[in-house]
Design a protein around this nucleic acid. Structure first.
Lengths: 212, 212
DNA sequence: ACTTTTTCTTACCCATGGGTAACATATCGG
DNA sequence: CCGATATGTTACCCATGGGTAAGAAAAAGT
């Protein structure tokens, strides 16, 4: 999956052949079919990996406390950093229409959950007074849009480090929403908590979704 | 091109066959080759159409006056509205890697010009005092990202009208940057000036880029 | 050691779809 | 009215690449 996601990102799903994926692993195409039912399932598993990363971030933030604004900032920070990883970028660079309908439905649901989380934090912040009145739907779209776009322009060899991006975006995307002015915003940007891989690495799983 | 851009957007470039495009025009595939050199050139012309729309917006804003912030707001407003059109969305939904290298280079240059414009307005605003100190590069990325993302989520049959989106985004994306507080921000959002098609409609043009 | 299962290979199949050849029919300038 | 040009059509070509069949080679279980 690491080999596949790299190729998919750098060349685009449709231009990558299974032979190329196999070659990079020093095996041959049919060997791949021991692990995946088809090309589109590889794509789905890569996408899914990214989604799990986001989900674990959200779970962690939900577990902690803080105002709506604080939670939103944590989410923005972690999400921005995620967009600078392969599996994170796959979340926004892959076309869900390339998936089998069954998997596409799963992906749509995951997307919806993420979007709902942004809106919930914003609405929550408006309720607890940490965020100024605004339309949560459009505000979430604006923030998520800016974040998702990172997955399109970020280059590992570029001038900006993931941390710089995450730090700056955390400020830039929320300063317009905060009720209080902007004095201490930079004082204690919550350090991204050490990566807890949330358990599963799932090395030996296979045969993902029901009958094909 | 209208037929093609619609199909490309709704199904994705690789899933659209030239037969489908032709069928929608009540002609047959080979007839298309009277107007385009190949599938990828149709894609390029659609993309290009969107780029021209942006360029004409920029030209118009440059011609007018106003602070850096004012120009930025005009750009955000017009760009947001553009993202809700087919040719506008094609600007961010199409994969430039599907283009012939020659055309891809043109597209990359156009993208760069647009990005530079965002940065210039922001830097200009910092110089004339209308925009607070910040990193123009990252600020431009954040704003352009939020705007570009519109092209991915906007639905003609959705709850939000292009005007609502444009109005709201103009506020949301610039309120964090403004030096002055936010009182009269909503007073005179400059109405998007009547569409000046900037001349060329180029109905009979063919054979776009040099030798294939 | 031997079976059984997992992993992998070589050799194919074949639908798809971009692109072309050769030829027909409008359309138009003069 | 007629040659030239633009516009279409039918019939084909063929590279590509996902996917499968049949059977080796490793690994693992006992």
């Amino acid at each position: 999956m690491r080999a596949a996601v790299q190729l998919f990102l750098e060349q685009g799903y449709h231009r990558v052949t299974l032979n190329e994926v196999a070659e990079r692993l020093n095996i041959t195409k049919p060997a791949l079919y021991n692990y995946f039912r088809g090309k589109d399932e590889i794509l789905f598993e890569c996408w899914s990996m990214g989604a799990e990363l986001v989900d674990s971030v959200i779970t962690e933030i939900n577990a902690g406390g803080g105002s709506g604004l604080a939670k939103l900032r944590k989410l923005v920070h972690a999400y921005a950093a995620l967009m600078a990883t392969d599996f994170g970028a796959s979340l926004v660079r892959f076309d869900l229409r390339d998936l089998a309908e069954r998997n596409a439905a799963v992906a749509r649901a995951a997307k919806k959950r993420i979007d709902a989380t942004f809106r919930r934090y914003i609405a929550g912040g408006m309720a607890d007074g940490s965020i100024r009145r605004c339309d949560p739907k459009l505000a979430a779209f604006a923030i998520a849009g800016a974040l998702n776009w990172i997955g399109h322009w970020y280059r590992r060899d570029g001038a900006l480090s993931p941390t710089e991006i995450a730090d700056e975006f955390t400020v830039r995307l929320t300063e317009g929403l905060a009720t209080e002015s902007r004095q201490q915003m930079t004082k204690k940007t919550p350090r991204a908590p050490r990566r807890r891989n949330s358990g599963r690495t799932t090395p030996g799983k296979k045969r993902t979704g029901g009958p094909r």
